[in-house]
């Protein structure tokens, strides 16, 4: 399972590295969304807003949807599913591999967006850096959940529009936990309880994915 996971993760990341879709489409979209969030608040409020962690995570969710669609698009290219089936790869390993690759991509995007939040929404640099562990954890949970929801919508009609309908309600607890942890970090408080919620979600999604991804692959 672990060997398959590294194989799939390496494959996805190499495809991403060569195609540069993340760098040229997803990251610019995220930065643009962050700038628009600042404009929506207005120039005076954007710089001092307590809404910055919420706006940051809202943009993260939008970008995550794009990244999930991108991750699943790789699987939809002609012959990919047949190749996976022929090679007899362990579905749990495929799930973990795709989750790892998506998590790495989201961590890169998250770093850029966090820098954008410091720059455009004037969040304190020290507080923002304190929020990094919770961001890593939240994005990891989003990657695990996203891989599952992406596979669910993969071959149905209108996967790009179906994904937000299925995934966003499920992402809501992660958005709340992430935002609260970020706010606590900025205020100098303790984000532990929010870390626990995120960690539980991460473990739950990983467990369900390992158990059920094979059923989706069977389909």
């Amino acid at each position: 399972m672990i060997a398959t996971a590294w194989l799939v993760a390496g494959k996805d990341l190499r495809i991403e590295w060569r195609s540069r879709v993340l760098a040229w489409q997803v990251v610019p979209f995220g930065v643009m969304a962050l700038v628009l969030s600042g404009l929506a608040l207005g120039p005076t409020r954007a710089g001092h807003s307590s809404a910055a962690p919420g706006l940051f995570y809202l943009v993260v969710l939008l970008v995550t949807l794009l990244a999930i669609n991108r991750s699943q698009a790789i699987e939809r290219t002609p012959g990919t599913r047949a190749s996976v089936a022929t090679l007899g790869l362990d579905p749990a390993g495929v799930f973990l591999g795709k989750t790892i690759a998506l998590a790495v991509e989201l961590w890169v995007i998250g770093a850029v967006l966090l820098a954008g939040t410091v720059l455009f929404l004037h969040t304190a640099l020290a507080g923002s850096l304190t929020a990094v562990p919770s961001l890593v954890l939240t994005l990891g949970a989003l990657a695990a959940a996203g891989t599952l929801y992406g596979a669910l919508t993969g071959e149905g009609a209108g996967p790009a529009t179906l994904l937000p309908v299925l995934a966003l309600p499920a992402f809501a607890p992660l958005l709340i936990a992430g935002e609260r942890a970020f706010s606590a970090a900025l205020a100098g408080g303790s984000p532990w309880e929010w870390w626990v919620i995120t960690l539980v979600a991460l473990v739950a999604y990983l467990a369900i994915g390992v158990l059920l991804y094979g059923v989706l692959e069977e389909s």
Binding site: L148, Y149, L152, T153, G158, L162, L166, A170, L212
Partner: peptide, 24 residues
């Protein structure tokens, strides 16, 4: 319900919606 409507194949529909119900 949206997921069920998006899949025409009965087996595919049943499996995917079952996984989604468990997740929900």
């Amino acid at each position: 319900l949206a997921l069920r409507r998006a899949n025409d194949d009965p087996t595919l529909r049943a499996k995917r919606s079952a996984v989604f119900a468990v997740l929900s």
